[in-house]
Design a protein around this nucleic acid. Structure first.
Length: 109
DNA sequence: AAGTTGACCCCAC
DNA sequence: GGTGGGGCCAACT
């Protein structure tokens, strides 16, 4: 199992209506957030349909791909189409983050 | 093999 | 509370 495979497998487990952040994916697959970004940046467009890459955002909910160009526009559009609550280019993490990290208490309701 | 480059994150000012 | 720099891992040259 390669690192890329592990990242992709984890991203596939993000449920619709939820998001994960880079560092969270990283801790699950055993690497760092920067590497997760690098892996996703190299993902072929043919995988776009089977891997919900748009559900990975920065820790504060920011859609970091917006700094890159068309991919960012695409990501934001997909999320909006799927009904995510996005304010000022930030996904509402309190609402859409997939699982508590148990390190914080942002999820007490 | 050493240097550069990221779809990041944390710390200090 | 915004901004700047360092650390981190893997790939590319």
């Amino acid at each position: 199992m390669t690192l890329k495979s592990r990242v992709f497998e984890f991203v596939k487990t993000i449920p619709k209506g939820k998001v994960a952040y880079y560092g969270m994916v990283a801790s699950h697959v055993g690497t760092t957030a920067q590497v997760v970004g690098w892996v996703l940046s190299g993902m072929p467009e043919s995988e776009y349909d089977i891997i919900p890459w748009e559900r990975v955002v920065a820790k504060d909910g920011y859609i970091s791909t917006l700094k890159m160009g068309y991919k960012g526009i695409l990501q934001k559009q997909i999320l909006e189409k799927d009904g995510y609550e996005i304010i000022d280019d930030h996904v509402n993490m309190l609402k859409h983050l997939m699982k508590p990290q148990l390190d914080n208490d942002l999820f007490e309701g």
